[in-house]
Computed example of a mutant assay.
Amino acid sequence: MAGSEWARLEAVVRHGLRQLRERYLHSVRDWREQGVTDPTGASDEAGESSPELGDSLLCDLPVDMQLYIMTFLTPHDLCSLGMTNHYWDQMTRDRLLWRYFLLRDLPSWPSIEWHSLPDISILNSCLSESPDGATPDYMSVYVKSCPKNRKSTRARHPIYGAVTSFLQSLVMQTEPRFAMFGQGLEQLDDSLVTRMMTSPELRPVVSILQRQIDGIGSGVTFQLDDQHKFNILTLYSRTRNERDRARVDPNVVGNKMFVPEAPGDNQLATPDNLIPQVKEVCRIVDGFIYVANAESHNNHNRPEEMAQVLAMTDPTFGPLKRPLLVLSCIAQPGNKRIPCVYMAHELGLNKLQRPWMVQNTEASTLSGLLDGIAWILNEVGKKM
């Protein structure tokens, strides 16, 4: 976001907090005239009243300084501050302040899931001083979407989870299989698959290497943490030589996973024109891994990418409960990336009727990959 937009947003927050503080101080004066000595409603165990608002050095600071101090707090610390008294409870719940936190922290979130994706209208309204319609509860949106909060609330029923894991283990005797495909496998300067093959955390069991599908795909079984085995069937839209040429010349077209419905037609991504070998892969796998190119400086055809995802995950090939992991991938740590929340909206994942997660990943370091693998293994019944 541009510096001018941040300055405008901060000015709106300060203005809102200043009005809130003036309203509260007016109420405190009314309470004092009525003989109420503890407007916060807080008292210690000995029955002594807490200091009044005017006796607190922190509360005596200008609103601008209070806001400046609160911007250094984490959302967890901000909620703790709100529990001290009524004044800070109202201050820390201000919607403009949580707008600020949402815009500030959202680009740094490493993942987002299907049940916690903020609505695009809420994200757009964050740039408006007077959004139309009902005012969103930005605090609730933040708490629901933040990855740390999602992880802390994931296992609420340990007994139920243990029983479910046991029953699923009876059904799934072999290692789960995942189909991995996407532009991030072919466009990035660093190969995600090559890095996975040499990763000490993902030990490949090369002895059961799968046979290639017409030269555009192969499969290999990995072992995570020396105990969880899973198979990845990697599908490419071009051969290796064609992929190398496409990195130099972006105008190179063609997709061997799909065949045109008639000579001369565009290769539209639909379930009907998937080649038979890829259709068979889509029927036998337990989940899907889509590798998206998340580098912001590249041009992306997200509608076509989403069409390919919809074709591969079509319900005619298998149940809707099969999960989709989207690896939002960049080649090197220093490359600018598209935030995972915006990647989810660009791909239209909110329209899918199946569990999905977008996970930030780096090809060269494999940062974030293990978190994504752990999520999809959990979704298919392999409790991590």
Rank of each mutant, 00 (worst) to 15 (best):
D225E: 14
G133D: 06
D137Y: 06
T92Y: 01
Q212K: 08
L202F: 15
T92E: 05
V163G: 00
P136A: 00
D119P: 00
D132M: 02
R195W: 04
M197T: 07
Q173C: 03
G182N: 01
P204V: 01
A155W: 09
G215K: 09
S111R: 14
E201I: 08
P147K: 09
R95F: 04
K144C: 06
L127M: 02
D214Q: 12
R93G: 04
V143I: 14
A179I: 14
L185E: 07
S130R: 15
D225A: 14
S140W: 02
Q223T: 11
I208A: 04
L102M: 14
T194N: 09
V220S: 01
C146N: 09
Q187N: 02
Q212M: 05
T194M: 07
A134F: 07
Y138C: 00
S191M: 10
S152A: 13
P200T: 01
L117R: 11
Y138E: 00
D190L: 11
L96S: 03
E201R: 12
S199R: 05
P136R: 00
R150N: 05
V205H: 03
R99S: 13
L185K: 08
G184V: 09
V205C: 04
I122E: 12
V141E: 15
F166I: 03
Y142C: 00
D226K: 10
P107D: 07
L167P: 00
L192F: 09
S199I: 05
S130Q: 14
R203Y: 06
E186N: 08
G133K: 04
S218C: 08
S130E: 15
V193F: 14
F166H: 10
L209W: 12
Y100R: 06
S121P: 05
V205P: 00
W109N: 10
F222S: 01
R211G: 02
R154A: 14
T164L: 11
Q183F: 10
F101H: 07
M196R: 01
V193T: 14
S165C: 08
F222A: 03
L117F: 13
L224P: 02
C146E: 07
I120P: 00
D132H: 04
L102T: 14
Q210L: 04
A134P: 15
G217V: 12
